[in-house]
Design a protein around this nucleic acid. Sequence first.
DNA 1: TCTCCGATTAGAC
DNA 2: CTAACGGTCTAATCGGAGA
Length: 421
Amino acid sequence: MTRQIALVDCNNFYVSCERLFRPDLKTTPIVVLSNNDGCVVSRSNEAKVLGIRMGQPWFECKQQAEEQGILALSSNYALYADLSNRVMSILADFAPRTEVYSIDECFVDLTGMSKVRDTNYSMRDRVLQWTGLPVCVGVGPTKTLAKLANHIAKKHPRSRGVFNYNDLTDEQQTRLLGQINVGEVWGVGRKLTKHLAAHGINTVQDLRMAHAPTLRAEFGVVIEKTQRELQGVACIELEDHVTDKQQMICSRSFGKHVTGLAVLQDALSVFTATACEKLRAQNSHAALVQVFMLTNRFRQDLPQYNPSMAVPLPMPSNDSLVINRWVQHVAELLWRDGYKYKKAGIVLGDITPVSVVQTDWLEPTSAANGTRLMSAIDGLNNRFGRGTIKVSAGGMCDGWAMRHERKSPNYTTEWDAVPSV
DNA sequence: TCTCCGATTAGAC
DNA sequence: CTAACGGTCTAATCGGAGA
């Protein structure tokens, strides 16, 4: 039986979220900026037409944008995450197996179901009706072809937001794939596109038909899987259960240069608290802690210094206080005066479930390990917002906060920001 | 020369 | 006024160290 894998992808997701609460901006060109108001990460169709590129640094296009009346907003992740959850739970009602692939994308396995075409339009219509967010649906026999089908649904208005690759004849498939650039394929990025072009592979059809052993020898196993997926052979399974993170990173660019150790340590303690909270939320602990700090790599005229150090913990932990002591210590070791630091962060690694108790028979196990204090902190922060209870001096300095000068209110997650009717 | 492991790279969004 | 370019995560591959 031909698999029917649907990929549902929200259109211009962040911009669409912002517009829900600002219907007056329906036709205004809008962009949403990344953290620290650094880069453009979402664009309305109007902004795309005006030539704003995905990932473009904001300072580069700011003047042009203002002249053209483009509205720029800081990203509001509380809002996007909340709306994402609503979309995903709507889609979960359409099939027993779904995979939340990213904040704005979901695979839905419609294999064996009758009236797939009707279901595709229902998914699109119901998400739009219940949330106000426009989505496109692409269907294919593999995840890679579903993503490609979604790309087609987005690009061709005549598809009315839905495209099923399985409905094509062999000749239609060949002709269509011959018209699409290989760089559009899931898993083929900038570097690979260039590399492939050097071997005469320019279109999706070129890749689908390339000599497999040569391809594997020159480009590795990843692209071979991609090729087979383009041929309709499933190599990437639907992952319909959430897997624990193997690594957790918390890092930020700073709103202005940091030149004092105390300020940097303060930032690191906040990052540590956030990462440990996520660690506890998945019932895991970490055995490796890494700290890093970076100067501004775009300022090659300034002295560069990008140290990092990883320390194995004597005992795996998810206790913010315990881990923070290591972080603060390592930060001191790495710190050098005289540099302008632009970014810092921590990495928690060697993550395992807390149920896997890795006892060291040379060390006595420390009783309770601060677990009750941490769950009390998590409870309060969950209820009243992250940062209500903080680790030691975490967040007491203000010399490092990121820029987000254009953020909208948290319309859906804060009572005070709920719009009145 | 082989194997292991940490570091780097490429990709996604 | 001036400087101003994101954050998280995974898997594959590279390359140095030690066997």
